[in-house]
Amino acid sequence: MKNFYLLFVMIAAVYTSAQDHQMHDMEGRNHEGHLHDTMVDGKLLEVNAERFDDFVLGLEGKQVAIVSVSGMVCDFCARGIEKTFSKDKTVLKLDVDLSGGKVLIAFDKDKNIDFEDIKKKILSNGQNATDLQIIKI
């Protein structure tokens, strides 16, 4: 009975893993070596894989801040985020992911990324920055 139980658990684990893997492939997130699979502070990057991979093209040696933003429900109301950060000369590139509720901001590798400053800039557009992940490219 014990062996049967162990066998059942193993089959279930393999099945679950396969399902996860299949889902991962379907979402286009399982490209070996791509940065969206990287763990940051123990958490997998919560980004749109394709969008993120496109964004980091040409950013080798830079760093990217992935900012989670709440209240970013429409394109028109997110425009101010792009405007605000475009005034910051240390920002190399920016992308808004409406579906994921993320703002991707590229900086030079030496830039000290200040989450409080980012929060302030996001708030000036009327939204709230709730989380920050930084990844070196």
Partner: peptide
Amino acid sequence: YLLNRKNTQHSQ
């Protein structure tokens, strides 16, 4: 004047 705003991940 914006009297009140509530932001969530999927709504405002």
